[in-house]
Design a protein around this nucleic acid. Structure first.
Ligand SMILES: [Zn+2]
Ligand SMILES: [Zn+2]
Ligand SMILES: [Zn+2]
Ligand SMILES: [Zn+2]
Lengths: 159, 159
DNA sequence: TGGCTATTGATATGTTATAACATACAAGGT
DNA sequence: ACCTTGTATGTTATAACATATCAATAGCCA
């Protein structure tokens, strides 16, 4: 499970396989991938960046798929709950999951220059955080792990 | 550097020593701990919870220390930049630093029941996140590490 | 078919954060 | 004392992010 997003790759395939995986999951788990939800996921999959809810809404609305905030937030809520997308807390923005199907605790590498985001994974119950929680008697239910900095390309450009 | 916040302790001392440490830092680094900034820090120190900017603003405003959003945001911006407070991204809220003076990468344990927050520390460049960044060629400048779940007291109460 | 539930449509509102511009005030040089 | 420069505040307005509510509709199953 290595971090994509910064490297060159067949991006059309990201979109296709992401959608296909989501469809399969929905069939298996009896979830309804309605037109708005499906298109929202496709839009998120179409870039390795986090989109704000209102960015997403603008695109949906261009296509006549709704024009009010709840439309975007409901779609995002569904996608996040289903595990098809994640919220990037440090940006208040949303990103298609890059490891759709795998059960995982996501972590993000966020470039402050080009705003691209790569998803990787953590093992929150291990490591220092897990140890601190253990010591404190704290029960971890969810973790937010996000690194901000410079992606390889922007790092090179800065030098 | 163990996580406080969930355990019983002499809290008046947290406030006193926090303020004293901030004052010392300001002298040493030629920063200006103005009345609004000082009082904002004192308010944050007075609880081991994260306060929203508007919560803080409400308290400041009760005391005639300003009534418009920028007042709170400027004070918070100063405190965060100086390292006297942290933003908890998952809550969009702010918390006094519990390890004032030490250079550290903060991490938080956030109780979803009582909303208390304990600060601990991470070593972001080590561990899985650091390894993923290394592999991707990503330069980490700042990390957000936050765990949500149940503190010991609320865990016991739930059982 | 009828009743149930999930989803959508629509309006309004709540919450968090910043832009923009004007003013006050402290520090340092002349 | 006077000016200059930079930092901090005051003030208004607005951008950006998120949810509450309620009515209408579509899919599902007994
Ligand atoms: Zn994922
Ligand atoms: Zn970049
Ligand atoms: Zn701290
Ligand atoms: Zn608790």
């Amino acid at each position: 499970m290595t971090a994509l997003g910064f490297t060159q790759h067949d991006h059309a395939k990201c979109v296709r396989s992401g959608l296909a995986a989501a469809e399969a999951q929905c069939r298996a788990r009896k979830l309804r991938l309605t037109p708005v939800r499906r298109r929202a996921l496709e839009i998120l999959l179409s870039e390795h960046r986090a989109l704000g809810a209102y960015d997403l809404l603008a695109r949906l609305s261009e296509e006549g798929l709704g024009s009010q905030p709840p439309v975007a937030y409901r779609a995002l809520d569904f996608l996040v709950k289903a595990g098809f997308a994640h919220k990037v807390e440090a940006l208040n923005a949303y990103l298609a999951c890059a490891h759709l199907g795998d059960d995982h605790a996501p972590a993000f590498l966020i470039c402050r220059a080009c705003r691209s985001v790569a998803e990787t994974a953590t093992t929150p119950r291990q490591g220092r955080l897990g140890a601190a929680a253990e010591e404190a008697g704290f029960l971890i239910e969810r973790t937010v792990v996000e690194a901000q900095g410079l992606c390889p390309a922007c790092r090179k450009a800065a030098a």
